[in-house]
């Protein structure tokens, strides 16, 4: 027997050396072949590698996670309960019955036909429909906001970047999103994420809070790229109140020469324009 034929037999033997189906064959081969013997010896020796004890902090971390989960779940259940009180109890159980489902399907079909017909005819009062659609939009935008807020908290820069670009979809200036974006603009560790946050914020440039936040973000500690983008944004927004801040900023010792030039240009634009 060659070692290759041994390929599938040895592992069987490793898991159960007492099995008579291969025991004799394997042991005979090992008596002849030093290499396979050595392989087997190493396999046996592997168990001598010591086990390590996890530190007690691992349990503590796990418990904290589980607690957080239980609390979140509890909140979730409470919400559900509240919703249930609002709706007539037991009402939805009807929908689970096959007869009801069948009836509903037929009704839907009927409604479909009616709607199809009415589309041909001149439009009737669309009020109720419009309201429903508005409610759905509202819900969708709340979900979007939540997604954006949680993504801005992510560990990886690419997820945060994605969060910022999602924020572009949120049309109205939501105060929470605005403050999250302003925080990102000032303190995010990645330049890309900060620049993207600035882009997203620009859309709300008629909000006083956003304007002030952008002015405040012009700091000497920022990276030159962000500094230039900030100056450009302030010029675009015609933010006259920023002139003092830019002047002060321009005085910073060791300021990057390109940034200094841009600041000068910005001051000119803002005072003249």
């Amino acid at each position: 027997m060659t070692c290759n034929e041994f390929e599938e037999l040895l592992p069987d033997y490793l898991q159960d050396p007492t099995d008579p189906r291969f025991r004799a064959t394997v042991e005979k081969h090992m008596a002849d072949c030093a290499e396979c013997r050595e392989s087997y010896a190493l396999w046996s020796k592997l168990v001598t590698l010591p086990d390590v004890e996890p530190s007690p902090s691992m349990r503590a971390r796990f418990d904290a996670m589980l607690n957080a989960y239980e609390e979140g779940r509890w909140e979730h259940d409470k919400l559900k309960e509240q919703r249930r009180v609002a709706a007539p109890s037991g009402f939805f159980d009807w929908f689970r019955m096959p007869a009801m489902q069948f009836g509903l399907a037929a009704a839907m079909l009927f409604v479909g036909i009616l709607v199809g017909r009415s589309m041909m005819a001149p439009k009737a009062e669309p009020n109720a429909e419009a309201e429903q659609i508005a409610a759905m939009r509202q819900e969708l935008s709340t979900t979007k906001q939540l997604v954006v807020l949680s993504m801005l908290q992510q560990q990886s820069a690419s997820s945060r970047l994605q969060g910022v670009s999602y924020s572009m979809d949120v049309k109205q200036a939501d105060p929470e999103i605005v403050s999250a974006l302003l925080h990102t603009l000032r303190y995010d560790t990645s330049v890309d994420v900060r620049l993207a946050a600035l882009d997203s914020l620009r859309r709300y440039n008629d909000e006083p809070k956003v304007r002030k936040g952008i002015v405040d973000a012009l700091q000497s500690k920022q990276s030159p790229m962000v500094q230039i983008a900030l100056i450009d944004t302030l010029v675009d927004m015609h933010e006259r109140d920023a002139v003092d801040q830019i002047k002060k900023f321009q005085e910073t010792p060791d300021l990057n020469p390109t940034v200094k030039q841009r600041a000068e240009w910005g001051i000119n634009k803002l005072t003249r324009g």
């Binding site: 041994f6 390929e7 599938e8 040895l10 592992p11 069987d12 490793l14 290499e35 050595e38 392989s39 190493l42 396999w43």
Partner: peptide
């Protein structure tokens, strides 16, 4: 069977490294 072959080969590599 593929797992067994993998085990066998890994063990062979381990032996050579050792």
């Amino acid at each position: 069977n593929a797992v067994k072959v993998k085990v066998f080969r890994a063990l062979k590599d381990l032996r050579e490294a050792y």
